[in-house]
C-alpha cells in the first residue's frame, strides 16, 4: 500500500507540528507527574534543556548512535533532579515554583557562558535521528504507565497528597519519597522530550528552555486538566495547534491565544477534559 502524493505532502507540511505535538505531550506528562501530587515544580523546561543539550553533544561530539543517545539523555536531568530534589522537598507552592524557575535561569547562564554549549549560537547541524513513531511510542508508553500508576494504590496516595498533604502523611504516606520520585519521573520525561526535539529540529539554542517555556509547559497541563494524564496531553495538543489554526491572523494571534487561556480557566475549572481517574473500589 503506497501513500498517495497529496497525503505525503500533507504529512510533510505538518510533520514538525506532529512532532511538536508529541514532544509537548511528553512535556505535559512531565508536568502532570508533579502537579498530580500537588507540587508546583516548574523545572520541566530546564530538564528538557539538559536532555536536549546532553543528547545533542553526545551525537555531535561523541558520534554515538541514537539508540544509545536517547536513553542516555535522561542521565543529566535525573542527576540534577536528585541534586535539587533533596533540598527543595521542604518547599511548596509558590516557593517551589520560583526555585525551579531559578534553576532554568542558572542553566541558561551556563549554556551562554560555557563554550562547549555554543553560547548564544547554540548547537546546530544536529542530524535528524528521531522518528515520528519513536516520539509517539514513548508518549503512548508514558500515558499508559502513568495511567496504570494512577489507577493503583499509588494513585490514591498521590490524590490524597494533592488534596491534603498533612492528612496524607498522617495516614502513612511517605510524602518526601513520593515528591522525589515524582520529580525524577518528571525529569526523565522532560529529558526524553528534549532529546527527541533536538533530534528533529537540527538546532537548539539557550533561550528555548528558560522562563517562558516553563510557563508554557505549565499551561499545557493546567489547561487540559490534571485529573488524568491524557487530559494533560490534550491540553498540550490544543495549545500546540492553536497558533497554527490562527496562522492567518498574525496581528491578533497571541492576543486570542491569551484570551482562550483566560476563558478556559474561568469557565472550565477542571481543564478541557475535567474527568477524574476511575479507580476500582475507592
Amino acid at each position: 500500500m503506497s501513500i498517495p502524493p497529496w497525503l505525503d505532502d500533507l504529512l510533510w507540511t505538518y510533520q514538525n507540528l506532529i512532532h511538536a505535538m508529541g514532544v509537548n505531550g511528553l512535556l505535559a506528562l512531565s508536568m502532570y507527574v508533579v502537579l498530580a501530587i500537588g507540587q508546583l515544580s516548574l523545572g520541566q523546561a530546564a530538564f528538557m534543556g539538559l536532555g536536549a543539550y546532553s543528547s545533542a553533544l553526545m551525537t555531535l561530539k561523541l558520534k554515538l548512535p541514537f539508540f544509545v543517545v536517547l536513553p542516555a539523555s535522561v542521565a543529566a536531568p535525573v542527576l540534577v533532579a536528585l541534586l535539587i530534589g533533596v533540598p527543595t522537598l521542604r518547599l511548596s507552592g509558590v516557593y517551589l515554583a520560583i526555585a525551579t524557575i531559578g534553576l532554568g535561569e542558572v542553566l541558561r547562564a551556563v549554556y551562554l557562558n560555557v563554550d562547549v554549549f555554543g553560547g548564544a549560537l547554540g548547537l546546530n547541524g544536529i542530524p535528524e535521528r528521531a522518528e515520528t513513531w519513536m516520539i509517539f511510542g514513548i508518549l503512548a508508553a508514558g500515558i499508559t504507565g502513568l495511567w496504570l500508576v494512577g489507577r493503583s494504590g499509588v494513585g490514591r496516595a498521590m490524590e490524597a497528597m494533592r488534596e491534603d498533604p498533612t492528612a496524607a502523611a498522617v495516614m502513612g504516606v511517605n510524602v518526601p519519597r513520593y515528591h522525589l520520585a515524582a520529580l525524577v519521573t518528571s525529569a526523565i520525561l522532560a529529558g526524553l522530550a528534549g532529546a527527541l526535539s533536538a533530534h528533529v529540529s537540527s538546532f537548539i539554542g539557550p533561550n528555548e528552555y528558560g522562563f517562558e517555556p516553563a510557563v508554557t509547559i505549565l499551561s499545557f497541563a493546567l489547561l487540559g486538566g490534571i485529573g488524568t494524564p491524557i487530559a494533560a496531553v490534550a491540553g498540550a495538543w490544543f495549545l500546540t495547534l492553536l497558533p497554527e489554526l490562527m496562522r492567518d491572523l498574525p496581528q491578533v494571534r497571541l492576543t486570542l491565544n491569551g484570551v482562550i487561556i483566560v476563558l478556559a480557566v474561568l469557565f472550565l475549572p477542571r481543564g478541557l477534559l475535567g474527568w477524574r481517574m476511575g479507580r476500582k473500589a475507592a
Partner: peptide
C-alpha cells in the same frame, strides 16, 4: 523556532 519551521513547511 518551531513556528518558523511550521511556517516554512506550510
Amino acid at each position: 523556532k518551531d513556528q518558523a519551521i511550521n511556517a516554512a513547511r506550510k
